[in-house]
Amino acid sequence: MTLLHRPDPFVLGLLLGVVVIAAFVVLNERVGVVGGFADFVERVTGRRSALGWKAWFVVGVVGGGLLFRLLAGAPTFRHGFGWLTRNLDGGLVAVVLVVAGVAIGYGAKTAGGCTSGNGLGGCATGSRASLTATGTFMATAIAVSFAIKAFT
């Protein structure tokens, strides 16, 4: 098994679960990524005076991607950017990604978390709000994906 091949999903799930647990054992905090991005936005716009722990967590996620790339020797990424670059011109892809990013940032911040904060951390605590949000964004994403498939 090399880093360019996915590990068994149950092994990877166990390891990601350990990260969620470790965040509580070390910091007594719930993992979350959009909260880290929000820390940066709040810092840049003068809404907070210092970066919170989640911003540093995001710095680590970026570093983890870089570390993986260095150790694997190649990106775990196929050519292009999924269905977007197969169906749209480059300029339009960038515009669509900005708009999709706005929906991701606005929606996740409003819902109090993304797939990490609500999906992993929130569901692991048994939060009904996180379970509701996770069920909603997964059902929506599945429905929209099938709609995109029907039109492409």
């Binding site: 269905w83 999709a100 996740a108 993304c114 509701t132 964004f137 059902a139 929506t140």
Partner: peptide, 20 residues
């Protein structure tokens, strides 16, 4: 939680990427 998650779900499905 429902409205925000639905908006997030649309962005996730269009880009096939989430914040992490």
């Amino acid at each position: 939680h429902v409205v925000g998650a639905a908006i997030f779900g649309v962005g996730w499905a269009v880009s096939d990427v989430c914040p992490g």
